[in-house]
Amino acid sequence: MTAKIYGITAIAVGGAIGTLLRYNLNVKIFSDFMPYATIFENVTGSFLLGILIGWLIHRRLPEWLRLGLTVGLLGGFTTMSTLAADTISISTMISTLDALKYISISLVGGITMAFVGFALGNMIGINKNPSGWEDNLK
């Protein structure tokens, strides 16, 4: 029970920080034509989550910290609802082609970077901990 409360608290704190970072970037990189900030956040967040989970195959973090960073911070930093809203908004106000561009860049960028990030994190984890926590693999 206590562990669950620690986890949920960490997710709340991580989610709040991730959301605040996303908001700050949205304000700093504001564009009327293309939500570059959201693309950046979603792609970077996917990359970082890939690295972290790849690394966690070999290394251990306290459960609350793992939840706070993955579910909280990176989950809150990235967003699907804004992506959906932006896509519909671009297609009605600018053009369908631009909406397609926006969603394609987000999807291809996010998935590619999550893929690369996981491989990278896995590599870093192995190098730092050759004996490994492979038994930690689900």
């Binding site: 996303r22 979603n42 996917s46 989950g75 809150g76 990235t78 967003t79 998935i111 996981f118």
Partner: peptide, 27 residues
């Protein structure tokens, strides 16, 4: 809007886990 649009719905949904799971299926 900041509370619900950027905050609540923004954080309730996630793109990072989506991409990570998608990359996993590819792998």
């Amino acid at each position: 809007y900041l509370c619900f649009g950027v905050g609540f719905f923004g954080a309730f949904t996630t793109f990072s886990t989506f991409s990570f799971e998608a990359a996993g299926l590819l792998r």
